[in-house]
Amino acid sequence: MATADQIKSLIKSHYSEDKERFPTIALQLAASEARKGHSSLAHEIKTLIEKGRKSSSHLKVIPHNPDLSGLVQPFEADKKLVQLIASPELKQRIDRIIREYLQRGKLSKFGFSHRRKILLTGPPGTGKTMTASILSKELKIPFYVILVDKIVTKYMGETSAKLRLIFDFISKNTGVYLFDEFDAIGAERTRDNEVGEMRRVLNAFLQFLEQDQSNSFIISATNNIELLDQALFRRFDDVLFYQLPGKDEVINLVKNKLANFKTGFDISSLPFDKFNGLSHAEISQACDDAIKETILNDKTKVTKALLLEMISNRKGVYFSDRS
């Protein structure tokens, strides 16, 4: 039967609404039962998990508008602020955005509005998209991603027309809207390689952004803040800067990822230089790789050597791509 630690972990993951950790622990429990010869019970657990995943995988339905097809994509928000590994200052600023929305009535009595037009900037994999998901989850409003690559076209006027449709949708349907890879439309208007059409697109975006009076959150994310037009910054209520994880963040991230799996080493003793240059997402993926390798080899503990091997593999993949 399940161990006391497994039962406690299941209960904790349920009440923290961690939709990733709960099935992971349950599958570990199934594997443990299978090793004990309880194959029927293991199969039942796996079947229940699969059924649960299918029933909860449905996305919020966008009100029918054929013109928005392929432009606005709904996503299920499954992250909470406590799950974000970031500097205390960054988490405080995200918490302030949440508090202002929850108490927007109090602010409006004094003539203020809550901050909701936010620019997120920093290296890939450092938590920008996760932040948009967190806002949706914490505030219990839908989460949509605007597919910027589908907006920009070569036909004069078509991109601005698509932007108008999107902002009209934003004004009528309260939610968190993420414009990812925003520099595709927010590039500086004076750049030599920018054509007149793109300058018109940026001007249209600035106009729509300034005119928007909805309760929706308009989140723009970029990996290249230096490309953005300076006129953008005064249109946003806040600018959040994301960085690669420092030593303490690396330790907390690894601890969180391996929390439900036994380790044969002290996580705080990991050599930080081995993680240097990797993003939160890359480190998380390396931890997942180590867990999966441990499971496939019928081992009970993630070893220090295995984790560092997976970190090295990730560095090899990502840094070769970046060179």
Rank of each mutant, 00 (worst) to 15 (best):
F182M: 03
V152Q: 00
E33V: 01
P66A: 09
M310N: 10
A4T: 11
S16R: 13
E50V: 00
I267M: 10
D266R: 12
L165H: 12
I185C: 05
K54S: 04
A34W: 01
N173L: 04
D273N: 11
D212F: 14
M198S: 04
R99V: 07
L71A: 08
V145Q: 10
I219V: 15
V317I: 13
L178Y: 03
K262N: 04
V145I: 13
E76V: 11
R200I: 07
K304E: 15
I218A: 06
E181L: 01
I49Y: 00
N313G: 14
F110T: 10
R96H: 13
L29N: 00
G122T: 05
E17A: 07
F217W: 01
R322A: 15
P142I: 04
K274F: 05
N297M: 12
N223I: 13
F236S: 07
Q83K: 10
F275E: 08
G122D: 02
I311H: 09
E210A: 12
L165R: 13
V195F: 12
T294N: 01
F205P: 03
S312R: 15
R104K: 13
Q230A: 14
L29W: 01
K274D: 11
S323C: 08
D149P: 07
G175A: 08
G105T: 09
Y242K: 13
D5Q: 12
K301P: 01
R314W: 07
L308Q: 08
G264E: 07
L68Q: 10
L253E: 06
N173E: 04
E50C: 00
L71R: 06
Y15R: 08
D248M: 14
P123M: 06
K109Y: 02
Y101K: 14
S108P: 05
F217A: 02
L71N: 07
D180I: 08
L139E: 06
G122Y: 06
K117Q: 11
L81E: 09
K140Q: 11
L71Y: 02
T121L: 03
G157R: 12
S323K: 13
S279G: 04
L206G: 04
A286T: 04
E210W: 12
T294S: 03
R21C: 06
A184M: 08
E17L: 08
K162Q: 14
L119I: 08
R53P: 00
F22Q: 05
I295M: 12
F236L: 12
N224H: 15
P23N: 01
L308A: 03
V152P: 00
L244F: 11
P245W: 01
A2R: 10
E50K: 05
L296Q: 14
S269W: 07
T300L: 10
P245V: 02
L71V: 11
K8C: 05
Q73V: 09
I134S: 00
K154F: 01
L307D: 04
E293K: 15
K12E: 09
V250D: 01
H38I: 00
S220K: 00
L240N: 01
F233A: 12
I45A: 02
F143W: 02
S55K: 07
S269I: 06
S136Y: 03
E44S: 10
K117R: 15
M1C: 08
D67M: 06
P23G: 03
L102A: 12
E282C: 03
I11C: 10
N297Q: 14
I151H: 09
T159Q: 14
E89G: 04
T131W: 08
Y318T: 14
K315Q: 15
E226P: 06
E100G: 14
Q230F: 14
